[in-house]
Simulated assay, not measured.
Amino acid sequence: MTEQQISALWDRMSEGWAAGDAQAFASVFDPDVEFVTVRGDEHHGREAVAASHAALFTSVYAGTLLKPEVRLVRALAEGIYLVHAVTTVYPAGITTHAQAIVRRGGHAGWSIVAFHNMIPGGSR
């Protein structure tokens, strides 16, 4: 069940992306998330993630889809999980790899507390 619940975070993220809704996209992140973009930009907090993605959704990424695939879920401690996920942006064909820390608990249920995204060298 844990893997399904964690995968559901990426599904919600992709639904927000498809809708061009930065708040919905960012809703899976902890209010205090540490987020590193594919360009190495650092965003501190869910609102900063939402703001950066609002700008993306009005750029060349408007109308695109994000297809996620969670490839690894590993328990690190009670309620703390390491996650590796690969996502592809369609129709751009850009594939990203993310490493994240997901936490279960609190008033929000599941949330991503740390996220580092990158584009592998061969995916550009």
Rank of each mutant, 00 (worst) to 15 (best):
P68I: 06
P68W: 08
L66T: 02
H97R: 08
G79E: 07
L72H: 13
E15S: 09
S111Q: 15
G122H: 14
P68E: 04
A24E: 06
T58R: 06
Q23F: 04
A18E: 04
A48S: 12
S52T: 14
Q5P: 00
E15W: 05
G122R: 13
Q4T: 14
I94Q: 07
D11V: 10
G20I: 11
H53T: 10
V86G: 01
T37P: 00
A92K: 11
A75G: 05
A75N: 08
G106E: 09
G93A: 06
S52K: 10
W10K: 04
V102P: 03
A114M: 07
G79Y: 11
V38E: 11
A85E: 15
G106L: 07
M1E: 14
V49A: 04
L66A: 05
E3W: 12
A108K: 11
A8K: 15
H116R: 14
A77Q: 11
P68Y: 09
H53F: 15
H84V: 03
L76V: 13
F29G: 01
V36H: 07
R39F: 15
F115V: 05
I112D: 01
T87C: 04
A92N: 04
E47P: 03
D11I: 05
P91Y: 14
V49D: 06
V49E: 07
E78R: 13
V60P: 00
R71K: 09
H43I: 00
A100T: 10
S59H: 06
S123I: 08
S123P: 08
A48L: 13
L65D: 12
G122V: 07
D11P: 00
G20R: 11
V49G: 02
Q4E: 12
A85D: 06
F35S: 03
